[in-house]
Design a protein around this nucleic acid. Sequence first.
DNA 1: TTGTACGCGTTATCAG
DNA 2: CTGATAACGCGTACAA
Lengths: 337, 337
Amino acid sequence: MPVTIKDISKHLGLSVSTVSKALNGYPDVAAKTRSAVLAATEQLGYQPSATARNLRRQRTDKIGVVHPVKSFESETFVGFFRGLVYAAQDFGYNLNLYTAPESDSAALQRICRGREVDGMILIGTGIAGVQEASMALLEREGIPFVVLGNPVEDSNVSFVAPDNRGGALAVMQHLIELGHQRIGYIARPDDPENNAQRFEGYRQALAEAGIDFDDTLITEAPYTPYSGMGAMRVLLELPKPPSAIFAFNDHVAIDASRTVLQRDLQIPEDLAVAGFDNIPSSLVASPALTTVHQPQIEMGKQALEVLLALIGGRDDVQRLTYQTELIVRASTVTKIL
Amino acid sequence: MPVTIKDISKHLGLSVSTVSKALNGYPDVAAKTRSAVLAATEQLGYQPSATARNLRRQRTDKIGVVHPVKSFESETFVGFFRGLVYAAQDFGYNLNLYTAPESDSAALQRICRGREVDGMILIGTGIAGVQEASMALLEREGIPFVVLGNPVEDSNVSFVAPDNRGGALAVMQHLIELGHQRIGYIARPDDPENNAQRFEGYRQALAEAGIDFDDTLITEAPYTPYSGMGAMRVLLELPKPPSAIFAFNDHVAIDASRTVLQRDLQIPEDLAVAGFDNIPSSLVASPALTTVHQPQIEMGKQALEVLLALIGGRDDVQRLTYQTELIVRASTVTKIL
DNA sequence: TTGTACGCGTTATCAG
DNA sequence: CTGATAACGCGTACAA
């Protein structure tokens, strides 16, 4: 039986409301009384019931994190989680984990209407259309939310995303400087916004370098395990295969690398490979992967701050794009430590 | 303004309590009434307030997951999270994420006394002593909990852990069969139980093979980034260096591999390397890492089931050890695909 | 300065 | 079969 406010009121012979006021810093309570209350609280080990307080205050101090189940199968989102965890701690919020409903959104609706959280962070896109459905639902239910990790078209949705186009541009310029003229792109249609922007960077770099766009060099890797291997195979079997590829992300790039190595081709001599995200595996991959770093931890923190502002009523939509950084490793350049 | 039970009671001209009974499947309510209530509920989009219901029922349907911040920096725990997420979904529970208080346990105490969750899962050990402190606190507060990922001495604590000794034994037998006589062990003192059991397997294998134990072959890698590299360096600089090493886990093993390769030694020809956990990176590491797989997803699910049993009052302590599986890859054997 | 009374949204008990 | 009524633990306007 946990100790309640009633217990300490009895213990002191005070009324419940006086105790409550003493604890919540109201000015109209005698200094003596206050210190007595504090002492009793300490002594009896009292802590207000989160549930009761939530009911009364009509807020939960909890943030829901909606993410596809797959985010735990991939390293792509780990940094976001870390950022969220850190920030939540700082601001005195708890994080509730919800796996995105892949098919129906009934679960999400229940959460909203059950008022389990004060706001939501949406991570990851997964199956095309799912994020849109979630956003529409949240908007309808009037729950503040922020999308983390990809940009969103809808101009009254807040998001925190990487500079996809800039990152892709940097990778491509790097490859072009190395002399590559036929550069493949492995796309990820299930992640439409990120993919579109990275592809844009790809095309822009080609255009700026005066290289003709060749659509046979574009393949797709859906959001399934090892899909990058199949995509790479397609590219290798072209009549005129590429000399380098830029993959939608590191997971895809690593898959692609495996296919390349299986065919006894050398990376980067026969084929250079670059990815996006700078996941942990990209460093230990063989060879270490050239990639684009996005400051995920910072982005996660920022997303939470934006969300708290929304919850606080300052409903200025924030659409933030974070600078990325090219990380050159052995998969594109020899003679790298 | 969310719709409450009062709204639908008004809407139908029924009493609140009748509505509640209809919704909660009480038998003493007319079929007609019930269907009317259900219809209204659907129409008005009613969902009971989680908070109010929690207050009334004195339970939250939430499980706290306590983990060191570092668990997001490492891949070691990812599988556990997945298992928990899946199981929580199945059983209608929510997961609350709490980062373990590295220094004081005040935060954890607040959570307990605030009755924010019905029970807790403890993941990861981190700094020595932290888990013990947490367990003592939880026990004192009377919150049911299960430790996930490592065994626990205290015999009235439930845990779900891998068969460390068995896994270590398998790795070591594999190395010994390959002809290795001088095998190093890189320990992780910050994870005392797991470490002790893996070390036990190490010694048992040596003993069974009639190989003398040599304590110069034992080094330590603390829970800090790249600590495995330093540990490996020590081993390589021995007068009689080992021909193989078994590292506490894959992160350490991968670090160690990098040190080996930096010295222009070949793996596994000059030095064979094996780890533990079968993290994603172990597959893409160069060369791919021989390791011990533990069924983390299943273990995570199991931990939640055990916890729910505890919460349900069936307080039979469960101390479960899961079978592991040796995964042989290129870091110990050449001619592996 | 303290205490009373009410309500947050539910569910459970008990009459009717 | 239905409906008052109380209670879960807390916060706050208002009265004393």
